[in-house]
Amino acid sequence: MKAILRVLGLPALLVLAWWAYSASADNFYVPDPGRVAAAFAETWFGERLLDDALPSLGRLLAGYVVATAVGVGLGVPIGLSARLRATAEPVLEFFRAIPPPVLVPLIMLLAGIDDTMKVLVIVSGCVWPILLNTVEGVRALDGVLADTCRMYGISRRHLILRGASPQIMAGLRQALSVGIILMVISEMFASSSGLGFTIVLFQRGFQIAEMWSGILLLGLLGFALSTAFRWCERRILFWHWSNRA
């Protein structure tokens, strides 16, 4: 009972405050929670789920997977060779420092405005944190551990991927939030479907409750993805000290 109160107490209070505010202030931009909930059910449990929400998620996933493959695939050789690392590092730092959203207009120029463009945008933003963290993780591999593995005939690939995995996961976590941002933004530019497009459409049509329901959906999506990520991370890094306490 106490635990439930602890988890739900403050959120309930906040919703109550929202409701009280919308009832008393009569602000056009702040509809009451009931209307937003109704709009949420009406808008998203139907065609829009299939036409807008799922394709958005699919593109995010595709971009994320490609970025992971490229980032880890390039990061391991760069991390292993000191000379390659010294050569590549300034270039990589520069690319990482570019705010990913400015790549949207560039990639629109190069790849048009179809699905490929949106996936490419997500890849181009997600790949840098993964790549740089992989390089850092591989570089920092313990020398004694490497020698021990050689002695016991444990495969080098196993050592490298396992040893660098905490860093790689840190990169993947950063890449996930970048990916969500880019998923939304790539759809706000020149698009006719997707979550980002739909929310802006509601906003332009002053469908305020629907717009709020879209914000709510993006929020739930962000929360669900980060929860799923944490679950995966715990499974993959089950051996790491941070998960053994």
Binding site: R6, L8, S177, I185, I208, M211, L218, F223, S226
Partner: peptide, 23 residues
């Protein structure tokens, strides 16, 4: 008491607020 609220609000991508900011 605030843990659940923070853990929920934190991962909300701030680009979701773009339409609200525009209005």
């Amino acid at each position: 008491a605030s843990n659940s609220t923070i853990e929920f609000l934190r991962p909300i991508p701030s680009v979701a607020l773009i339409p609200l900011a525009t209005l």
